[in-house]
Simulated assay, not measured.
Amino acid sequence: METTFETLVRAEFAPKNTFLNTASNGLLPARAVTALHEAVALRAEGRPLGALSEDVETARAAFARLAGVPVRRVAAGPSAAAQTGLIAAALPAGAEVLTAEDDFTSVLNPFHVRGDLKVRAVPLERLAESVRPGTALVAVSAAQSADGRIADLPALREAARTHGARTYVDFSQAVGWLPYDADAYDFTVSITYKWLLGPHGAAFLVVPEDFGGLAPTLAGWVAAEKPWDSCYGPVTELAHSARRFDVSPALFTYAGLRASLQLVEELGVEAIRDHNLALADRFRTGLATLGHEPLPAPGSAIVSVPGLGFRQPELSAAGIEVSDRAGNLRASFHLYNTPADVDRLLDVLGG
C-alpha cells in the first residue's frame, strides 16, 4: 500500500480523546514510545548507554536540518528559559531589550531578573517600529502562545539591521509547522515537546558562527571538546562548536526525540503546515456560524476564542482537550488531528 500523509500519521497515533492542545504539549508518536521503552530497558538491564548519547547527536543534526543551519551552530539544553538565560547573561549592564507585551515568560523573565537591563515591552504589532538606536536586543516568540499571532519577522529583521540590534526568536510554538530559517536571526531557541512531538526536557539554541559573544556559563564536562577526557577538574578545551553551551542531556528524552524528529522530517514541514492550517480555518469558519469571533491570528495553527475559556473543564469532561488561556479558549491543530475533531469541538460548543 502506498504510504501517504494520512496512513503514516494513523500508524503513529491513536489518541483516546479529541486532542486539540498541541500548544501545551504534543502527542508522542508510536516510534518515540518504543524508543523510550528501549532506552529504559538499557538502564534497567545494566547495559551500556552509548547509544543514548548517540541519540543526542542524531536529534541535534535533525533539528539543524529543520532550522536550516550547520549542526555546529546548535546547542542542546533543558528548556527555553535556560537558553534565554545564556542570552541575558551576555548583555552589558544597562542594555535595552525590546520585547512583546504578554509574550511567554520563558522569553522574558531571564532579562527581567538581571535587574540591570532596560526591558521595554510594546504590543506585538508595533515591535518592528519600536526598534530604535540603542536597542541591543529584540526578543520575541515567532508565534504567540496565548493566541497564535505570528510576529512580522521580516519587518523585525529589517528594523534590527537598520539600528544595529540583535534578534532572539523563540520558535517553540512554530517549529514543526511553520517554516524556520534560523540563519535569518542572531539567536533562536525552541523546546521540542510541542509541535516536534518529543518528550519533555530538551531545547535547542541556535547561535552565530562566532557564538555571538555568549559565554558558556552553564558549562560542565559535556561542553568540552573531548568530554570523556574532561570529567575532572576545570575544562581545559571547550567544544569548538555550539556544543560548548550544552547542558548534560536527559538521555531518555533524546532517545524519544530522535524518533519524533524523524517522523517530522518524513512528513515534511510544508505538508504539516497545510494540514494544520486547513483545520484551523475550518474551526474559524465554524465559529462564525456559532456567532463567535476568534482573536485575529491569520496563518496560524493556534486559534483562541475570547470569553470561552471557562468552557475548558466541560470540554475536557467530554473528551476534548483544549486550553484556557487568559479567559480565551485556545485550540491548536496538528498533524494527528482530523476534520472530525474540529467538528466535534464545534458540536459541543454549539450545544
Score class of each variant (00 low, 15 high):
36 L>A: 07
227 P>G: 10
180 Y>C: 11
68 G>L: 01
207 V>M: 04
214 L>W: 04
50 G>E: 00
83 Q>H: 03
72 R>W: 02
225 E>C: 05
261 L>N: 11
119 V>H: 03
135 T>H: 15
43 R>L: 01
228 W>L: 03
202 A>H: 13
27 L>P: 06
139 A>R: 02
224 A>P: 01
293 E>T: 15
275 H>R: 15
98 L>H: 09
330 R>C: 00
150 I>D: 09
255 A>R: 11
113 V>C: 14
231 C>I: 11
286 G>M: 02
331 A>D: 03
121 A>R: 14
208 P>N: 13
69 V>K: 00
168 Y>K: 11
274 D>F: 06
278 A>M: 12
31 R>I: 09
109 N>S: 15
214 L>Q: 08
104 F>K: 12
303 V>F: 12
55 D>I: 03
165 A>E: 00
241 S>P: 12
24 S>T: 13
168 Y>I: 05
56 V>G: 01
156 L>S: 07
15 P>E: 05
35 A>E: 08
122 V>W: 05
122 V>E: 01
249 P>Y: 03
271 A>K: 14
159 A>H: 06
218 L>D: 09
298 P>L: 00
154 P>F: 03
254 Y>E: 06
325 R>K: 10
140 V>T: 15
187 F>M: 04
135 T>K: 14
342 V>D: 05
211 F>V: 01
104 F>H: 06
40 V>E: 11
220 G>I: 10
248 S>L: 05
302 I>Q: 02
173 Q>C: 07
213 G>M: 02
72 R>A: 09
39 A>I: 08
307 G>Y: 10
254 Y>I: 06
142 A>E: 15
344 R>Q: 02
99 T>H: 15
151 A>H: 03
163 H>S: 07
177 W>S: 09
258 R>E: 08
81 A>L: 02
122 V>R: 10
324 D>Q: 14
77 G>D: 09
260 S>P: 10
177 W>P: 08
66 L>H: 07
321 E>S: 13
63 F>R: 08
141 S>M: 04
78 P>N: 13
210 D>L: 00
128 A>E: 04
205 L>S: 09
204 F>S: 04
331 A>P: 04
219 A>P: 09
243 R>C: 04
